[in-house]
Every structure is written in C-alpha cells, then in structure tokens.
C-alpha cells in the first residue's frame, strides 16, 4: 500500500519538476522524487540502498542548487513542435512495446529467484566474515562491480579537476 502511495507521489513530483518554470523549484521537486525513492527502498526492506540514496540525493541537491542559483537559463519553446510531438510519441510507443515483452520475462514482484542468492546467503558469512550479506555480495562476490563504480567516480573527479584547473589554462 505505502509503495503505491510513494510511486504516485514520485510521478506527480517528476511531472512537476518538468513543468515548473522556476529553476530552483524544479530542482526541489526533483529532489522530492529522489527522497521518496529512498523511502520506497526503506519500504521494500533495503536499508543499505536507502541510506546511499538519501545521502547521494542530498549531495546532488546541494550541487544542483549551487549550480543553478542566480542563473536564468534561456528556455526555448517555439519551433518544430510537430517533429517534437511525433518523435516523443514514437519513442513512447517503442518503449511500451519493448517493456511489454521485457516484463513478461521478469519474475513476479517480490518473488526473487533464489538460485544464486541462496548460495550467497548460505556461504556469505563463512567466506567473508561479514554479517551484512549486502556488503559481502557488493564487495566480495561482485567485487569487480564495486571496483568499476568507484573507478567511475575517481575518473570523473580527475576529469573535472583537469578541465577546471588553474595552472596552464589558455585564456
């Protein structure tokens, strides 16, 4: 029940974020989507994800407000409305057809297939010594995944520092 309320709220907030004219109000509406996503993770009994989503959402909120404050970006609205509408409808149709066939293959919501995860639950503590199986899976059984995602942050930070450096910049 709570999950459906949260989903409806998220859809309303996402539409509001798209439609609001003011940029800061749009950012606030966007972060409302993220914070209710964190609540949805909590309702679905995934506290690890909920904590991560919460703190990342706060950081994104600060970054976006810092980037958009006192800045009025030009908003292009006229021209090519026919092409825009037709392409949007076409993409929505393709998405719906694709998701109709894709969702038939998925297991029922809340009924995971325990083929691999059962093994993790059995051997998780004895192999890693971590009582939190989520961390054990994320850092041990799927360690290469974690390495990749931290390297993404690493490379993006290095890239931002390289682009926005002071030394050796050509004016």
């Amino acid at each position: 029940m709570e999950i459906y309320l949260l989903l409806i709220f998220m859809i309303v907030a996402a539409v509001a974020a798209l439609e609001i004219k003011d940029l800061i109000s749009s950012v606030i509406a966007l972060s409302a989507v993220g914070l209710s996503l964190s609540l949805a993770f909590l309702v679905l009994k995934a506290p690890n994800l909920a904590i991560t989503q919460l703190v990342v959402e706060l950081l994104c909120l600060i970054l976006l407000i810092h980037a958009t404050i006192k800045k009025d970006l030009p908003l292009v609205k006229d021209g090519r409305w026919l092409f825009n509408t037709v392409s949007t409808l076409a993409f929505v149709a393709v998405f719906l057809v694709f998701i109709y066939f894709a969702l038939k293959e998925l297991p029922v919501f809340g009924m995971p297939i325990m083929r691999v995860s059962g093994e993790y639950l059995d051997k998780g503590f004895s192999l890693t010594g971590a009582a939190n199986i989520v961390t054990a899976v994320a850092l041990k059984f799927r360690g290469l995944d974690s390495l990749g995602e931290t390297v993404v942050i690493f490379v993006s930070a290095i890239g931002v520092l390289a682009v926005m450096r002071k030394v050796g910049k050509i004016r």
Partner: peptide, 17 residues
Amino acid sequence: GHLGPGGGFAGGVIVAL
C-alpha cells in the same frame, strides 16, 4: 558497513558532505 546497513559509499558521501 560489514555489520549493518551502511558501507563505504554512503560513509564516503557523508564525509564529503
């Protein structure tokens, strides 16, 4: 992070915050 909800990613973001 290996005992309860949390971990390096969330903790790192809180330190950065």
